[in-house]
Design a protein around this nucleic acid. Structure first.
Lengths: 122, 122
DNA sequence: TCTATCATACTACACTTGTCGTAGGTCTGA
DNA sequence: TCAGACCTACGACAAGTGTAGTATGATAGA
């Protein structure tokens, strides 16, 4: 797996929330804020297909794109890549966030997750 | 501030550990594992200078590069950018790591940091 | 059936990134 | 003082990314 560029990732995020979908539907339902031309989205989808992140199938008069990599898997891969690239450890990552300001509710959420990770398999 | 490409980030990491330094010294002391040509490092340093990440000063017969952005600041910025790009919250980021496998010591380190951020185990 | 519409495939193009090569100046030992 | 050795500045070039235009085929009313 390879890390995706920003724009392609935005398209994947859209696909992850809608599920298999056509370019136009994605544009209208999820990607409108980017004000991309329809062709632009097609380009990103083609590139994602080339990279094996989505499958293309003809659906009536338009293409239907289906995610082949799910969000969980991509995030699992990407998060570790983030650590390797710059932080080394989860602790350093969170410490960096904290330096820049971490909200109390974010901290609490994180603590809740840790409690769960510790309480769970053990 | 902008996120740096991989290679430029490696050079910044080298500069952060050595402090102000010359291209050759960086290459020999920190960047040898990459097997980059000397010119390659010069290019990365020039680009970093263009982007305002380092300052250049003539030091005898070679250039001395000084980091203008410190590691703490860059990490603070970058870590938040990582969340915005894909995870939304620290919790989601750590959850993604956990899915892919997080080591027990990493978890403990992180917990220790949280305790500290919360002002100790209160 | 002819035309306006829409979708796709293909092409384009500037900018960024990864990686060096070349040209030309300076220092240093023979 | 002259050839290497080094250094830097600048150019180069392929691949990747951001963004869209063009050509072309299918479609659905008029």
């Amino acid at each position: 797996m390879k890390r995706l560029p920003d724009t392609e990732l935005e398209v994947m995020k859209a696909l992850w929330t809608t599920g298999p979908d056509t370019p136009r539907a994605l544009l209208e339902a999820r990607l409108a804020p980017f004000s991309w031309a329809a062709n632009t989205i097609n380009t990103y989808l083609s590139r994602l297909a080339d990279k094996g992140f989505v499958a293309v199938r003809r659906e009536g008069k338009s293409n239907l794109y289906t995610p082949l990599v799910d969000q969980e898997a991509y995030q699992a891969f990407d998060s570790r890549a983030v650590l390797d690239r710059l932080y080394g450890s989860p602790r350093n990552f969170v410490a960096a966030l904290a330096r820049q300001g971490i909200r109390r509710d974010e901290l609490e959420d994180l603590q809740a997750l840790l409690d769960q990770l510790n309480g769970g398999p053990q």
